[in-house]
Design a protein around this nucleic acid. Structure first.
Length: 810
DNA sequence: TAATCCTCACTTTTT
DNA sequence: GTGAGGATTA
């Protein structure tokens, strides 16, 4: 490999790289141009790592150091993969074709489908998502009566998942387990049976996709060599989030090619045996990008050591540190640095920005989560009026349940919002049902799917019938699916017999459409067609249409959307088969539709926020027991991971950062007192502009100072409390500052009413239960979405959804 | 077999 | 407060 020149003049002709290197700082330039076996790019938040990674790839292509087919770039989400591909294409155009830019899982699926027959699977294997595997484990836990030992399906699932992430299989675990412990024995049995069931169903779970690929490479070195020869440049993004199995996969792929063997890629498919003496090729060049301060997935098996010990694992590795942040103002970064600096055993890193100090961080303490939410809504509206689009604002929280209060207030305040993440489209029951129908066609060996649809819609087929079908299948050596073709031999009543026959016929009809036996190639739209046939003729649609449950209407819409997804797939992949479609669906999560729908505020957990950025960010619920979460206290490294999570949250902000909390929070049906998060006090007080500090709220009424006094050594110093707020002069902190509502015009209750068709016009005066009296300035919107723009006498400007606002006309 | 009542548990989750 | 899943009943 030739050493790339560090600086290429912009006029260097067709292979010139000047534009690729333009505008890079020296560290970025080094990260793009360094050539060697291994490179670690430590990329602080907002340091332009995506740009560096894409330019690095583009430069490799532009300078003809690598063919596209020799590049494997790995990201964690399909969305990130898509963006990276787009950006590389933007830089080098057509020359980007043929690269593998994908997630770990997609890359492994591609490999496994190609090699499946090597180890007892077929190309059309199913991918079990965590719901599928939980369902299977649940059955096994029941069969083995493992619940008697306190094992729940989800605990077993997470244990198995952890073991697989460590590349430990059932056999390996059994070898070192204490088999005199009955609980251990049963767990081993469940694990073993689980793996056996997967194999029998021709299925892999998510963890298997990685682990089995590693096992494949280890068991069949010549297969591994094929890929080692092919991929000369491997780049991994978000390396701090890799688990052991992923690490091992990378390790396998970057080993030197072990022996002279046929190379199908270099020989036009002809088998050419090189002489034994052929020099083995060196391992692929590896580039990893990551930031250990943003490692927030240890709970999923991510191993921070992968990045912290990179230099040991890959001797001779070069390390480049990107510390200049191009995203945030210095105040935000100073807060972030101060917080993360409290984590010990991290490599020092100091993000800096040349954007100037910027605005101070805004702090707010509400009485309740509603109060806090109202603050967020008000602030969002103020920013909107100042010209910031909603799509540039985001609200983060630690747990999904916190979104509820925010939603309630946002609806009432007519703030358009969008929840990111949350219940996933592909995890909805009706979508899983539709998928199960498709899987029943594509992989009849997969009993789970067939069992799932057996009685959906209701056909009168219950447990008893299911068991007899299973028994019949067992006795005759058939799959569960094939047993459906012999309803008369099942010993069930005529009604049920007919129902089974009908299901069998529907499946057969759909199979004929999507996978014609004659070997002819099904049309591009066959998946959408087959899906429609399945849903129509199985009676699934009909049962939803006939239902009186209002939720079933939404289910129908979801199914329509799913059919639309299938049509889109056909359009984008004219050659795409049913298996391709199912693969895409299994590996694509909703996180991939994170596209900012322009014009709405984004609500999401701090985990989901990683990798995103917004002009204005609201981090809510900055309280003890929430961030850091209560449960994290018991886990090793828990509090530190929580701190990183908080760090990720605040480093998403470009210009404005808001930190808010509530003094009381209703959780699990009861209201409890919340305390400010310890992380708040790690931020230098002069960086925060408290609109309402914890001190303000506490010093009112009977529960004064509870949160502040709860910490020994806390209290006030230098005329300012620890939150940087001056105590009001002339008043004793222990006495109520004010007992009237005027100081807290935003205090909000969570009542909802129905005003029906209350007529309002500009100029009317109204009284609001929480905000007092005000004057209507304008009314916009139609019907149930009519919005009153009100200027309240003491609570300021607000928008209200008229239908549900607690208001009366005066 | 299906509907209904009751109990329980309740972080985060790129695939 | 809520939703899922299990046990109980019709």
């Amino acid at each position: 490999m030739t050493e790339a020149p560090l600086i290429v003049p912009p006029s260097a002709g067709p292979t010139g790289a000047g534009d690729l290197l333009a505008g890079l700082n020296p560290q970025q330039l080094a990260a793009v141009t360094y050539r060697g076996p291994a490179l670690l790019i430590v990329a602080g938040a907002g340091s332009g790592k995506t740009s560096v990674l894409t330019r690095r790839i583009a430069l490799l292509l532009r300078q003809r150091e690598a063919w596209p087919s020799q590049i494997l770039a790995i990201t964690f989400t399909n969305k990130a993969a898509g963006e990276m591909r787009e950006r590389v294409e933007g830089l080098v155009g057509e020359a980007a074709r043929g690269m593998w830019i994908s997630t770990f899982h997609s890359a492994c699926v591609r490999i496994l489908r190609r090699e499946a027959e090597q180890f007892g699977f077929t190309k059309s294997f199913t991918i079990y998502d965590s719901g599928d595997s939980r369902a299977l484990i649940k059955r096994l836990v029941k069969e083995h009566e493992a619940d008697a030992f306190g094992m729940t399906p989800s605990s077993v699932q997470s244990r198995i998942s952890k073991l697989k992430n460590e590349l430990t299989d059932a056999e390996g675990y059994a070898r070192q387990a204490n088999m005199s412990d009955p609980a251990e024995r049963i767990f081993v049995d469940v694990f073993t049976d689980y793996q056996r069931a997967l194999q029998k169903a021709n299925a892999f779970d998510f963890d298997d996709l990685i682990a089995q690929t590693v096992f494949l490479f280890r068991a069949f070195p010549q297969v591994a060599d094929t890929y080692r020869r092919r991929f000369r440049h491997i780049l991994v993004d978000e390396y701090q989030d890799t688990n052991h199995a992923q690490y091992a996969l990378i390790h396998e792929l970057t080993r030197p090619v072990s022996a002279a063997a046929p190379d199908p890629y270099a020989s036009n498919g002809m088998m050419i045996f090189e002489p034994e003496t052929a020099p083995a090729e060196p391992g692929a060049s590896l580039t990893v990008v990551g930031d250990s301060d943003q490692s927030i997935y240890a709970f999923r098996g991510a191993d921070i050591r992968n990045i912290s010990e990179f230099e040991r694992d890959f001797p001779g590795a070069q390390v480049v540190l990107l510390e200049q942040n191009y995203r945030s103002t210095q105040n935000i970064l100073s807060a972030a640095n101060a917080v993360i600096g409290n984590n010990f055993d991290r490599k020092a890193k100091n993000l800096w920005s040349d954007k100037g100090a910027g605005d101070r961080i805004v702090g707010f303490t509400g009485y309740s989560q509603h109060d806090e939410a109202q603050f967020v809504a008000d602030e969002v509206e103020a920013l909107r009026r100042a010209g910031m689009p909603y799509s540039e604002m985001a609200v983060f929280y630690r747990t999904n349940s916190q979104s509820r209060a925010l939603e309630e207030i946002f609806i009432r305040a007519a703030v358009p919002y969008k929840i990111m993440g949350g219940t996933k489209f592909y995890e909805r029951a009706e979508i899983k049902d539709a998928l199960a129908y498709l899987v029943a066609v594509s992989n009849p060996a997969d009993d789970m799917s067939v069992r799932r649809i057996l009685n959906k819609p209701r056909r009168g087929i219950g447990d008893v019938t299911e068991t007899s079908i299973a028994r019949f299948a067992e006795e005759h050596g058939l799959s569960f699916r094939d047993a459906l073709a012999h309803p008369s031999q099942l010993g069930v009543g005529p009604k049920i017999r007919a129902a089974i026959a009908r299901l069998d016929a529907v499946l057969a009809e759909a199979t004929a459409i999507m996978q014609p036996a004659s070997g002819e190639i099904p049309s591009a739209t066959s998946v959408a067609e087959g899906l429609t046939v399945l849903l129509e003729k199985s009676g699934y649609y009909e049962s939803l249409r006939a239902s009186r449950d209002p939720q079933d209407e939404a289910r129908l819409e979801n199914l329509d959307e799913f059919v639309a997804v299938a049509r889109d797939f056909a359009r984008n992949n004219p050659e795409g088969t049913l298996v391709d479609f199912l693969t895409e669906v299994a590996l694509v999560s909703d996180a991939d539709d994170l596209d900012d729908e322009s014009g709405s505020v984004s609500l999401m957990t701090m985990h989901t926020a990683k990798g995103l950025e917004y002009d204005a960010v609201f981090v809510t619920g900055v309280e003890e027991d929430l961030i850091p979460h209560r449960i994290s206290a018991g886990e090793p490294g828990g509090p530190q991971e929580e701190r990183r999570l908080f760090y990720v949250g605040i480093t998403r902000a470009r210009k404005r950062l808001h930190l808010s909390l509530a003094m009381t929070r209703a959780q699990f049906g009861e209201v409890s007192v919340a305390m400010p998060s310890r992380f708040l006090q790690e931020i230098p007080a002069d960086l925060i502009d408290w609109r309402q500090s914890p001190g303000d709220v506490n010093s009112r009424g009977g529960m004064q100072s509870r949160a502040l006094n709860a910490r020994p050594g806390g209290g006030f110093g230098g005329g300012r409390d620890r939150f940087g707020v001056k105590p009001l002069p002339g008043r004793d902190q222990l006495k109520p500052l004010s007992t009237s509502m005027d100081k807290f015009p935003n205090k909000v209750t969570a009542k909802v009413r129905d005003n029906g068709d209350l007529e309002l016009t500009a100029g009317d005066r109204i009284r609001h239960d929480d905000f007092g009296e005000g004057r209507i300035e304008a009314v916009t919107g139609e019907g149930a979405k009519r919005i009153a723009h009100v200027r309240f006498d003491s609570a300021g400007q607000k928008k209200l959804l008229i239908k549900i606002a607690p208001i009366v006309k005066l």
